[in-house]
Design a protein around this nucleic acid. Structure first.
Length: 263
DNA sequence: ATGGTGGCATGGCCA
């Protein structure tokens, strides 16, 4: 089962890219972020025509998340963080086959110390508490999304610029990510790759992609119970080279089934 | 450090 996460930065604009990429990459499960459209406008039928069923939680202009699955039912759908009041559509979770999947669009935070930054830290606390419960209920858990946090210095093009007081790399943000991982989650990319300089996001400005000035902020986390099943992972840079691209590239993890694991 | 590019409620906002 191939599971991928992609911040599309407007599904209205990026639908041709999504369709092209689904055909090329053949993922079984996809989490989308920044769909930026209300639920009645979600392109359910177009995706269905490609074999993908979908669930979604969107709003105008900002945020918006969705889960797609091909050939597997999407069940027990959860929208938002239980008990955490939030108008922003950033969370959707579902059971897909024998895996619980949580798709997150983590708060960006704007700048360290800003109101949005404090919201980011509160939001990360709430999501951690909820995921702790989800872990207990679902040992086979994937948490994916645009985390808006680069885990360590290998995940930024310039560690002197992206330092411990900068948004997306600050000490408090990284500590919050570590507290999430401490529940028993693993950054799937780091199970298979030690090297730095592999990125998932490049700013539209300053020709950042051409100069490979990026960050790795799009993550797929797997629970202890899935660690052995995660056989490959990566980031697909190709859609970032297409005309009028999203500023993010898809991040993916390949899981072998429980039956395959037992051999 | 600033400002740059892109998306959308096309006028500031968010990223």
């Amino acid at each position: 089962m191939k599971i991928a996460s992609w911040n599309v930065n407007s599904l209205n604009v990026r639908m041709p890219h999504l369709l092209r990429w689904l055909e090329a990459a053949q993922p079984d499960v996809v989490g989308l972020q920044e769909t930026k459209l209300e639920d009645p406008r979600f392109p359910f039928e177009e995706l269905q025509a490609l074999g993908y069923s979908s669930v979604f939680s969107g709003q105008k202009t900002y945020n918006g998340v969705a889960l797609l699955a091909r050939g597997i039912a999407i069940e027990q759908v959860q929208i938002g963080i239980p008990g955490f009041e939030d108008d922003q559509r950033r969370v959707i979770a579902a059971t897909i086959g024998d895996v619980r999947v949580i798709n997150l669009y983590v708060v960006n935070g704007q700048s360290v110390g800003s109101e949005k930054y404090l919201y980011k830290l509160r939001w990360l606390d709430a999501v951690r508490d909820w995921i702790a419960d989800e872990m207990r209920a679902h040992p086979r858990l994937v948490v994916m999304g645009d985390f808006n946090i680069a885990p360590d210095a290998r995940d930024v093009h310039d560690p002197e610029l992206w330092h411990d007081a900068h948004i997306l790399t600050s000490a408090a943000e990284r500590a919050a990510l570590q507290r999430l991982l401490a529940l028993g989650l693993h950054d799937a990319f780091r199970l298979h790759h030690d090297e730095g300089g592999v990125f998932s996001w490049w700013d539209y400005r300053q020709a950042a992609f051409r100069r490979d000035m990026g960050l790795r902020i799009d993550l797929t986390l797997v629970s202890d119970g899935l660690r052995g099943a995660a056989v490959a992972s990566g980031i697909d840079r190709e859609p970032r080279t297409w005309e009028r691209p999203s500023d993010h590239a898809p991040a993916w993890v390949q899981l072998v089934s429980a039956l395959d694991q037992r051999g």
